[in-house]
Structure formats: structure tokens, C-alpha cells
């Protein structure tokens, strides 16, 4: 009973119990199974490219994309773009995460805050983030500031919504137990409401981050920033550099995957999965 390790199923991977206990061999089989759809996609891509369904310039082979990727990486251009994008993402998303969790908790706990914020959030949330972009650029000028602000603004909505739902879903019996044991309001917040709502908060942060990515790459195309993956992809269009565009898309995918696996999955396994609040 004590050594019962919760089954953690990584996104897209089959449940572990299917391969646990069958050793290295089975592990390779899982890797092969995960890689299979990508290999099929790559093969189709290669066939389309080699048959020149589109002009070669517009639809490069994988080899050309890979060499552009290596060239741009070694020259430091791609890392520079990626770094600037990541800085904006981190700054904007950090603001969204902190503000979103605070507003969400207030909405969940206080009727007054709910009455004020809920209608505003409900109306603003479904509007596509990029629709605000021109306004933000007019108000705050070009460059980093409006980009970060827009990312923060847009990605806060899913965080707010999910935190609010999570706080509402905190079991009344936890609150009662804590109060019976002498928890005052600040302690109740920290020791019960926050951990109790954590599964929802993490979901909100995940969705918020996805939102942040979308709007950031978009706004980089508009905000005339000198560096950034969005700008790199957009700029490459002028010269029909599809290999550069695809390299940028690959980097975005890789960063997204790394954030999911190294940040969110770790965080989840350490908290809500370990606590049995999520499997």
C-alpha cells in the first residue's frame, strides 16, 4: 500500500504498467511506438518535397530544413531569436500567472470580487488575443513593452477562470476541518485553498501558457521587434526562406515540449499526482 507508485501517464505515451517489468526491450518498443507517427509524417513530407508538388524553394526537403536549422543555430541567429522570444514569454506569462491566480482566488472567495470580475472576464476572455494587438501597439508604441503587456493580458484569462473554478471546487469539509483546528483566514488561504485548488490552477497555467505562445508569436510579427521567433518567421517570408520559417516552427515546438515535460509534468508529479488529486 505504501509503495504504491501512482501511475503517471506521460502525454502521448501508453500507460506505464504496460511496459513496467519487461525491461529495456519493452522500453525501446515504447520509444518506437511514440516515434512512429512522426516517421510516417516525415516520409510523406519527403515524398511531397521530392516530387516537387510545390516549387522546391517553397517546400524544402527535410535535409534542407535541417541544414538551415544547424546553420542558423551555429551562427547564433536562431538562439538569439529564441532567447528574445523566451524572455518576452517568461515576463508576460509570469505577470499573467501571478495576477491571474490572485484575481481567481479573490473571485472564488469573495462574492464582491466575483460580481465585479466575472462579467468582465467572461466578455473579454473569448476575444482572440491578437485582436487587441493593434490597440496595444497604438497605446504603448512598438517593441517589447506592448508585446509583454499583451501576452500578460491575454494569457491571464485562462488562469483566472481555472483558479476561480478551482477555489469553488475546494471541498467544504477541508475548510471546516481547518477551521475547527483553528486556521484563521490567511492560514486557510495558504494551507487549504491554495493546495486544494492546485489541480485547477495548474490546468489554468497550462492553458495560459499555450495562449501566451499564440499571441506572442503573432504580436512579434506586428510589433517590429528586432529579434524574436515570430519576427524571424515573418521576415523570412520576404525572401521565400521557407527553410528558415520551418526552423523557427521547429524551435517553437521544441520549447513548448520542453516546457511541458520539464516544467509542468515535473510540477504535477511532485504535487497533485503525488497527492492522488490527479492521476
Amino acid at each position: 500500500m505504501r509503495d504504491g507508485v501512482p501511475a503517471i501517464s506521460a502525454a502521448g505515451l501508453p500507460a506505464p504498467e504496460r511496459w513496467i517489468g519487461r525491461g529495456e526491450n519493452a522500453r525501446w518498443r515504447v520509444i518506437a511506438r511514440t516515434a512512429f507517427p512522426f516517421l510516417v509524417l516525415a516520409a510523406i513530407w519527403e515524398i511531397v518535397a521530392r516530387l516537387e508538388v510545390f516549387p522546391r524553394r517553397l517546400f524544402p526537403t527535410l535535409e534542407e530544413v535541417a541544414s538551415a536549422f544547424v546553420r542558423l543555430t551555429l551562427s547564433g541567429i536562431l538562439p538569439h531569436h529564441a532567447f528574445d522570444t523566451l524572455v518576452r514569454l517568461t515576463a508576460g506569462f509570469a505577470i499573467a500567472a501571478i495576477a491571474g491566480v490572485i484575481i481567481g482566488i479573490l473571485m472564488g472567495r469573495f462574492r464582491r470580487a466575483e460580481d465585479i470580475f466575472l462579467p468582465l472576464v467572461s466578455i473579454a476572455a473569448p476575444i482572440p488575443g491578437l485582436a487587441y494587438a493593434p490597440l496595444f501597439l497604438l497605446w504603448f508604441g512598438l517593441g517589447n513593452f506592448p508585446a509583454i503587456l499583451l501576452v500578460a493580458f491575454v494569457s491571464a484569462f485562462p488562469v483566472i477562470f481555472n483558479t476561480w473554478t478551482g477555489v469553488k471546487a475546494v471541498k467544504e469539509i477541508w475548510v471546516r476541518s481547518a477551521q475547527a483546528m483553528g486556521a484563521d483566514n490567511p492560514k486557510l488561504f495558504r494551507h487549504v485553498i491554495l493546495p486544494g485548488a492546485l489541480p485547477y490552477i495548474l490546468t489554468g497555467l497550462r492553458l495560459g501558457l499555450a495562449q501566451a505562445w499564440r499571441v506572442l508569436v503573432g504580436v512579434e510579427m506586428l510589433a517590429a521587434v528586432p529579434w524574436g521567433l515570430g519576427w524571424m518567421i515573418f521576415g523570412a517570408r520576404e525572401f521565400l526562406n521557407t527553410d528558415v520559417m520551418l526552423s523557427g516552427i521547429v524551435v517553437i515546438a521544441m520549447i513548448g515540449l520542453a516546457l511541458e515535460k520539464l516544467v509542468f509534468e515535473k510540477l504535477e508529479n511532485y504535487t497533485v499526482v503525488r497527492w492522488g488529486m490527479m492521476s
Binding site: R176, S177, M181, H191, G196, W275
Partner: peptide, 28 residues
Amino acid sequence: RGVVFQDFAQLFPWRTALGNVAFGLEMK
């Protein structure tokens, strides 16, 4: 007064058995 409910869910899932039992003392 100490209270025990019928619902098993009264324990805090994010705390170990020891952490749950220590909760009231921590509040003090």
C-alpha cells in the same frame, strides 16, 4: 473541540498522515 466527520475526504490529500495530524498544532 476536535471534530471527526464521516467523509474520508476530510483529510488534506496534499499532506502526509503526519502533516495532517500536525495541522492543528501548526495553526497554534
